[in-house]
Design a protein around this nucleic acid. Structure first.
Lengths: 205, 205
DNA sequence: TGTACATCAGTGAACGCGCGTTCACTGATGTAC
DNA sequence: TGTACATCAGTGAACGCGCGTTCACTGATGTAC
């Protein structure tokens, strides 16, 4: 049943990108084929190149969208809370949850793609998309770290965000083992510790 | 020139494993082919299955060896120093160095394989090798965190190690950008900060 | 120690397979009258 | 509004390629005498 309406074609393109956004995060940039993506969108593979120049072009678009979604979600979570500690919980707790670990398709694109980026050429478009997305997320995260000393805050944000990425990565790699929950719990407790409930402040560099 | 001596054959097997140990870490478990590995060992691909049951079997052996090498290296570095702070520097500084970032083939197998492990079946042999190796490295790292409170030390070690993994992963993904060095510097400073030089102690959970 | 022969480590062609990509085709859509 | 025709979104077969793996072959190695 070929030749659908222009409106339907635009919708199909949208469905393909949405499916790819999820699948690339779930199985990695090289873990999913054009046939897989088109199948997930309810189409056959032949029509793919009517919508996209190449598989890599789709990866760039789907990856970029994943970053946009994450950045918006972060901003919304932080904006919901006036209290700094509450905002921190609102961002860190879901990020380092079992749900986040078990649903990479709807989770952080940095964790999903960081491994693949290591093998990507410096001038690759994917890598540029990754860098822009990472910068945006780091900027969002920065609003949680706000002592007045910009340099110290920057380092603190980098440390905390690196910990989030490392902990989620390790939790996924060890999924099914007790260690996996242990890592999430330790990192979550560390990042959401505050003066009133623990023996030490949020660490200062 | 077929049929080399038994001794040479054993040596060839060793060369293949050594090449694989480096290449798998450099390009990922799926980024390297049997032809590549055999070529790096100075052989042709046909003889591969005389030495190994499958590519996966080689990956298990090469991965296991990478973990052994890392664990030994860590133990040696820590053992060289009586002083806790010095031992910490001896382990953290090389781990989060530009050299480590730029030479994944001779660096941490956890960072190299964590991404691939996320897509590996729970009962996979590779995953078991990864878990055993990670446990050993965590145990080694634990000797740097020794306050007497075992539970707290465990959480602290998990947090610090997650940070190391996250920082090195992000530094590799952003290699070539200023952010890459920034991440390494911030994480290194954080993990090696001590009372005498900074405004706060190593953070306590 | 020397000879004759069986063994087997490594070679390179070949296999089936899945991949990204191309293309002739189809028939509903969109348009010109 | 209704009709005739050009357009083009999606189909599925086919392409070349690289992959993991197999195998007939070779000739130096290792062994039996």
């Amino acid at each position: 049943m070929p030749r659908v309406s222009r409106k339907q074609a635009d919708l199909n393109r949208e469905i393909i990108v949405e499916a790819a956004t999820r699948l690339f995060r779930e199985r990695g940039l090289h873990g999913i084929s054009v046939v897989d993506v088109m199948g997930a969108a309810g189409l056959t593979h032949g029509g793919f190149y009517g919508h996209f120049e190449s598989k890599e072009a789709l990866a760039r678009e789907a990856g970029g969208r994943a970053f946009e979604q994450s950045a918006e979600r972060w901003k919304a979570r932080i904006a919901e809370h006036d209290d700094k500690t509450a905002a921190r919980h609102a961002l860190v707790d879901p990020y380092l949850s079992a749900a986040s670990r078990d649903n990479p398709g709807d989770s952080c694109p940095v964790v999903a793609f960081a491994g693949d980026m290591c093998h990507e050429a410096t001038d690759s478009g994917l890598r540029q998309t990754f860098m822009e997305g990472l910068d945006k997320l780091l900027e969002s995260y920065g609003s949680l770290v706000n002592s007045g000393d910009a340099e110290r805050d920057r380092r603190q944000a980098l440390v905390e965000y690196s910990l989030m990425v490392g902990a989620l990565t390790l939790a996924r790699a060890t999924r099914g083992e007790p260690l996996s929950d242990e890592i999430l719990d330790a990192a979550r407790a560390f990042l959401t510790a505050d003066d009133s409930t623990t023996t030490a402040a949020i660490p200062i560099l």
